[in-house]
Amino acid sequence: MQMNTAVTRPQEAILQTNKVIRNTYILLSMTLIFSGFTAFLAVVSGIGQGTALIATIAAIVILWFVLPKTANTGAGIPVIFAFTGLLGFGLGPVLSYYLSVNPSIVMSALGGTGVIFLGLSGYALTTRKDFSFLGGFVMVGMLVVLGAAILNIFLGIPALFLAVNAAIVMIMSAFILWETSTLIHGGQTNYIMATAGLFLSILNMFQALLHLLGAFSND
């Protein structure tokens, strides 16, 4: 009897982990499509930077104060769609700018983000390596990048702008490995929170790639 319990428990845990991974990627795909739609609406309606900033602030408020309280309930699904939709909408002015300069920059950044995300997720999923040691690196990196980005709002140094965006791509890559590894090893059991983390990493990486490709293009 005890042997049966010992054998079936890990199987249940594996099944549960696989279910969380599957639900995370399904929800992530749906939220990415939805945020793409809201970003399209923002570009078509030609919203200004002020509106985009308000949408981003609203999304952050949802992420900090609403999502943690609703993530374990059915209300978490509409909340995550509201969060991702607002962030997509907030991308409007940046997308409009790069589409007017050179549309291929947007396509390259989009494709590049997709390739990096799928590559890193695939790497973490197939090797099943434990990347929990990256937690400190990711957190310190985020704090340093945020500090440098605040400083550069007032200083406006182009080299610092490029360095910050290059660092964002690297930190978000590390975050994808860390979050995927946490999903695989059962550290993250809530697929809504996992989706929010992965969505943010994809969005930040896309924006940073846009800025990098825009800076290095001849346009």
Binding site: G112, V169, L209
Partner: peptide, 14 residues
Amino acid sequence: LPMAAVVLFIILLI
């Protein structure tokens, strides 16, 4: 190793 691959890929994109 995957980070190095990401860096090379971004250089290629640029």
